[in-house]
C-alpha cells in the first residue's frame, strides 16, 4: 500500500514545478501530509491525488512550510484554521466526533448482544424440541 501511495505521489510530483525536498525525511513527511489532506474541490481525493489547481496550490504551501522548518502539527493547524476539520481525512477525536469514532465499536456491541440473545433463544428452543420429541415418542 505504501509503495502504491509512493507511486501516486511520484506521479504528482512530476506535474508540480517544485523540486523534491532536500532530505528523504522531509520528503517522507511531505508525502504523508499531502496524502492526509483532502482536496476540497474533488472531495474524494487527497491533495496528493488531485490535479485541481487548488490541490496544487496546497501542495506548494505544504512544501514551502516544510522547507521553512514548520512541524507537521503546525502545517495541519494551518490547513484546519482555513478550511476546517473537513480537510483532514482523519478527523480529530473530539466531543463532536465522538459518535463517528465510536460508532463501529457501538454497532459491534449491539450486534454481539443480538447474536447472544438469538443463540440463547435457539438453545432454549433446542432443549424444548428434545422435550417435545420425548412427548411425541411416548406411546399414547
Amino acid at each position: 500500500m505504501t509503495a502504491l501511495l509512493g507511486l501516486v505521489t511520484f506521479g504528482v510530483l512530476a506535474i508540480d514545478t517544485e523540486q523534491n525536498l532536500p532530505t528523504p525525511e522531509l520528503q517522507a513527511r511531505y508525502d504523508r501530509l499531502i496524502n492526509e489532506l483532502r482536496c476540497l474541490v474533488c472531495q474524494n481525493q487527497s491533495i496528493a491525488d488531485s490535479n485541481a489547481g487548488l490541490a496544487s496550490d496546497l501542495r506548494r504551501e505544504v512544501h514551502s512550510m516544510l522547507l521553512a522548518g514548520r512541524s507537521d502539527d503546525e502545517i495541519v493547524k494551518f490547513m484546519t484554521d482555513r478550511y476546517g476539520d473537513f480537510v483532514l481525512y482523519r478527523p480529530p477525536f473530539v466531543r463532536r466526533t465522538l459518535l463517528l469514532w465510536l460508532a463501529p465499536a457501538l454497532l459491534l456491541a449491539i450486534g454481539a448482544l443480538v447474536a447472544i440473545r438469538v443463540v440463547r433463544g435457539r438453545m432454549r428452543l433446542a432443549s424444548t424440541d428434545t422435550d417435545d420429541s420425548d412427548i411425541e415418542s411416548r406411546p399414547s
Binding site: L40, V41, G53, L54, D57, L58, E61, R82, Y83, G84
Partner: peptide
C-alpha cells in the same frame, strides 16, 4: 494569481 491570499481566506471554489 498564485492563490495565496485565497488560501488564507479558505477559498476552495
Amino acid at each position: 494569481p498564485e492563490g495565496r491570499a485565497a488560501i488564507n481566506w479558505g477559498v476552495y471554489g
